[in-house]
């Protein structure tokens, strides 16, 4: 027996999901971060973040169409993490690293938190 593994399939699907997000197609939730609004797909959010997984597996909360995050969350940090969820690319800037890491801790994105720790260590002279 043979099996054909399409090695680009996961990234092709993610690319299409990101295109759907940019065109606001089938996005089903608005995330509010300090008055900034971000449209997204619940399934993508919960696949990437422990916090969103907990929210959207809760039968009382899963139908919410808007979620307000803690006002301490930095919108720029959230922008970078949302972009990461839909592209696999994490843009780490020294000026924003603490905002990104604290947002990743809040969103329970443990592997991103570890990566931020390593980035901070490697930048430390």
């Amino acid at each position: 027996d043979s099996c054909i593994q399409f090695t680009r399939h996961a990234s092709d699907v993610l690319l299409n999901l990101n295109r759907l997000r940019s065109r606001d197609i089938l996005t089903d939730v608005t995330i509010l971060v300090n008055r900034q609004q971000f449209r997204a797909h619940k399934t993508v959010l919960m696949a990437c973040s422990g916090l969103f997984y907990t929210i959207f597996t809760d039968s009382l909360k899963c139908n919410l169409n808007a979620i307000s995050l803690d006002p301490k969350v930095d919108p720029e940090g959230f922008t970078i993490l949302l972009e990461f969820m839909y592209t696999s690319r994490l843009t780490l800037k020294e000026s924003l690293i603490m905002a990104i890491m604290n947002t990743a801790i809040y969103l329970q994105m443990d592997h991103v938190v570890d990566t931020c720790h390593r980035f901070i260590k490697s930048s430390d002279p």
Partner: peptide, 21 residues
């Protein structure tokens, strides 16, 4: 896929959704 010969296909796997129509 133990016991299965896996052939790697490197090309695009699905259609590409346009950025904007």
């Amino acid at each position: 896929y133990e016991g299965v010969n896996t052939i790697k296909e490197m090309g695009r796997s699905i259609h590409e959704i346009p950025r904007q129509e």
